[in-house]
């Protein structure tokens, strides 16, 4: 599968675990779900895909959505602190 460049932002728990707020990454992931699995592997994110939302631009996206070259993606964990 073609290598794509994605611009990632990390929020809350994901920022903490990834140790960064953003990165640009090369990936062969076909879907956002596959991309999340790749990141989970890389950073040890403790949440399964069913507990995570992905957003592209101003919209939430299903994890089945295709990863496109140059895409700006943010993965959002649930956050309840107060």
């Amino acid at each position: 599968m073609k290598v794509k460049t994605v611009h990632l932002q990390y929020f809350a728990l994901f920022r903490e675990r990834a140790g960064r707020a953003a990165e640009t990454r090369q990936t062969r992931a076909g879907t956002l779900g596959e991309l999340y699995a790749e990141l989970r592997e890389a950073y040890g994110f403790p949440l399964g895909p069913e507990q995570v939302r992905a957003a592209v631009g101003e919209e939430y996206r299903d994890l089945e959505a295709a990863v496109e070259d140059g895409m700006q993606v943010v993965f959002l964990p649930p956050v309840a602190g107060g």
Binding site: F11, A12, L13, P77, V79, A80, G81, G82
Partner: peptide
């Protein structure tokens, strides 16, 4: 509603 985690919130 709102939530916070370290430096991030919604």
């Amino acid at each position: 509603q709102a939530g916070i985690y370290q430096v991030d919130g919604w």
